[in-house]
Structures are given as C-alpha cells and as structure tokens.
Write a protein that binds this DNA or RNA. Structure first.
Lengths: 220, 220
DNA sequence: CAGCCGCTGACACCTCGTTGACACCTGAGA
DNA sequence: TCTCAGGTGTCAACGAGGTGTCAGCGGCTG
C-alpha cells in the first residue's frame, strides 16, 4: 500500500511516516504543497494524508487537484480545525475522510486501512461528446460505436481535451499533464500527437485549433 | 432513480425523504427493518439508505439479506457509530458506502448519486464472461463448458481480471493481489503467467494488453 | 530413497508499436 | 506579399510486451 504524507510540521510528519512504515506501508513524506504536487504527478498513491494548513500551496488546493486529476487516491484530510462546517468543506472538496488534530495514531492507521479498502468515490466516469466516448477507468475510447485504438499519449491528450469540456488547452498544459513535467519546452510532440489523434478519430474537425491558445474539442 | 430510506428516527427519515424527492428521486421511507425487508421483497431500488442502529431487525441483518438476495441495490450505511472498527465492519457486510452521522445533506445526495451511477459492488459468487466462468469458492474455471486446468497463480490472475470487469489491471496490482506483497518490483512473473493463462484459455484475444496500464479482460 | 512431474520464476532474445525529432509545406492574418 | 503558427511526411531509436527455455522446488509415487 502506497501512502503520501503531506505535513509541514516536520516532527509530526516524520513520526507519522515512521509509524506507518512500521505498519508495512510504503510511505513518502513531503513538507509542502509544491513538492506534494510533484510527487502526485509522478507516483500513484492509494491514500494521501493531507494537512489542510500548508504553507505555499494550501491543502485545499492540493485536494482539488487530486480530484481534478481523477486520481484513484483517497484523501484523508488532517487538520487542527474541527468544526462541522470545515469538515463539510473538506469533504466537499473531494476528501474521503477527515481527522481532526490531535488524533490517536491507532485511529489514523485504522482509517488509512479503511480508505485503502474502499473504492474511491468516483466522479463522472465517462466523457461523451457527440458520438465520441471516453472511459478513463476502462481506458476505452469509442467513436460511432467503434473502438478507437489509441496509444497512451493519444489517450491522455484526448482525455485532457474532453475534461476541458470545450475550452482550449495549450500545448504547455498538455505537456505538463500527459507527459511528465520535465519536458523540453521546444518539443514538437504535442502537435505530432494531435495530428495522429485527429487521424485516428476519423473526424479531424473534432479537434479545433485555437491560434496561440491551443486545442479545443467540440462539434464542428 | 428509486431509493429506499430505512431509518427509525422519524424526523430524520422524513427530512431525508423529502430532501431526496426534491432532488428528483423516487423515495420510499420505512421506519424499521421488518417493513424494510417487506419492501425489498416487492420492489427494486437503486440505492438503499440504511441506518445501522435499527430496532427489531438490525441494520446489519438487513444489509446481509440484501447482499444474500443478490439484489442489484447499492447500500449506503448510515450510522452514529463512527469508530473505524464499526465502519470497516459495515463495509465488510457488503455495504457499498458509509456515512457517519451527523452528515451534511449535500454529501448524502452526492454519495447516493455516485452509488447509483456505479455498478453494484456486490461480489458475484461466480464470474461470467461470454462462455467463460470462474467460481472463486469452488476454485473452478470453465470455458465453453470445459473445465480449465489452472494453476493457483493463473487462477488468481484470472479472478482479478474478471473482478475488474473490463478495467485494466496493472502488473503491480496483480503482483500485490495474487502474489504476497513482498515481491521484487522487477520480476517478470506477471507477464509469464499472463502468457500461460492466454494459452490455457485457448482464446488469447480474451486478455487484452493495455499499454502502460496493464491487462484487461473482455470480448474481442 | 529415487524418480517423475507440474508449478514457478528468471533470463535472454525478439518484435513491433510508440515516440519524438527534423525538414519541409500551408494558409491565415498583417 | 511576407511571416510564422501550425500541419505533414518520414525516419530512427526505444522499450513495453511476447516467447522460448531452463533450473529449482515441492509433492507424489513406486
């Protein structure tokens, strides 16, 4: 079981990390939101333990991004604030569970286990646009009922475009989301991939070019 | 969408019922387990919202019966008990989701919607896919009526793939579930086992490879 | 105890789809 | 007409995944 601990109070972070490792989990610990997002972009975690009050990128923002990325990670929000209002806010952001500080370590372990066991509260699973559908979980895309044979990158790009729901997505954004961050800024992969994708879609007009702004998906 | 609310605290029951109706759902409300079982015997519900602490027939028992009846209803367990032990117990009984009281109504609605959207979690005793069947309890798999002679690992892999129901399962996931956790991350057992399995299935196209994502079972 | 056999997992090697770079073309807007 | 963002064609390298094979292990049998 892979767990990411995001907590700026270093002593607590280390303690939790060590404790969870002793329980047999593979644990990564980071001290701020920026690094957290880096790790999340690269690795798959079963559970993310997230301190809400982070310096830099706020915990809520991290949570929002995890949800937006349709990650399969379950989020356990950890915070000093314990009013019901705040709790609901957290859950509203997509967190799967909530633990007010101070907490009992046993309880933390139990909750992490419980979260890992339960399937993520899944949001809309299938994108649809005209006769085009894309199911991220099943990794299947179809057009006019026929299955499209897309490569991983093509699939990723199409997923991003559909997620953007008609808004243009820049080449830089696509690079960042589909390729892993460290990409040469002068690369031409995106345009090549878009081209291949258009070809496989069979309807090149589905992906519009918005000059200087990127690509947008939508009916002709 | 049809919803059955089983909750003995009448005020809460009515409130939830009214609220869900306002959200456009067809809601039946009952105040105890006996009546609940009666309704369940007669009607088909998409989601059952079940208070765990019921007088008469206990919520756990109701849940057990829903699962035993192989109903297609998804169960959302509602309870005051919020210790993890109890929570885990509930999910163990076959409930699909769990919401500790007090809860935010918005969250209830969101979870009901999420449940209705996803196929029942209830684990079938026998998996079927085309002419392929697999019975985990009896450890028997057949294809086109003929028994397949599968080794334990092959059986485990096939079971995982069938349980994933068309979603791809990564080599890491298979390793974690079929082999015991502590596996060398560079092992190639999975691909070897998949190969043997394909051979024994006699229909290699049944197990598709999803590049970078794993293996998926499904009709060609 | 020796021999047989199926299961397992490790290699080494092969295949071919995927990927990304590069050179060149095109067309819209100034 | 000029410019340059974006489109196309092509090619070479890479690496994920498939295959063949072998050896160790453990259970069973004579």
């Amino acid at each position: 079981m892979r767990v990411l601990v995001i907590e700026d109070f270093e002593v607590l972070a280390r303690t939790v990390g060590t404790g969870l490792r002793r329980e047999g989990m593979a644990v990564d610990v980071v001290l701020d939101g920026v690094e957290a997002l880096d790790r999340l972009a690269v690795n798959r975690y079963d559970v993310v333990i997230l301190d809400r009050d982070l310096p830099g990128v706020h915990g809520d923002e991290v949570c929002r991004r995890i949800v937006a990325a349709r990650s399969s990670s379950r989020v356990l929000m950890l915070t000093a604030a314990s009013t019901v209002k705040q709790r609901v806010d957290g859950l509203g952001l997509g967190a799967d569970d909530y633990l007010p500080k101070p907490f009992d370590f046993e309880e933390l372990v139990a909750r992490v286990r419980a979260l890992a066991r339960r399937p993520a509260l899944c949001l809309p699973t299938v994108y649809e646009l005209g006769d085009l559908t894309l199911d991220p979980a099943r990794r299947v895309a179809t057009r006019a009922g026929r299955r499209l044979e897309l490569s991983p990158k093509e699939f990723g790009v199409l997923e991003c475009l559909l997620a953007a729901d008609g808004r243009p997505v820049s080449a830089e954004d696509l690079l960042e989301r589909v390729w892993d961050e460290a990409a040469d800024p002068f690369t031409t992969v995106v345009k090549t991939t878009i081209r291949r994708l258009r070809g496989k879609l069979g309807a090149p007009e589905l992906i519009h070019t918005v000059r200087e702004a990127g690509y947008r998906i939508g009916q002709p």
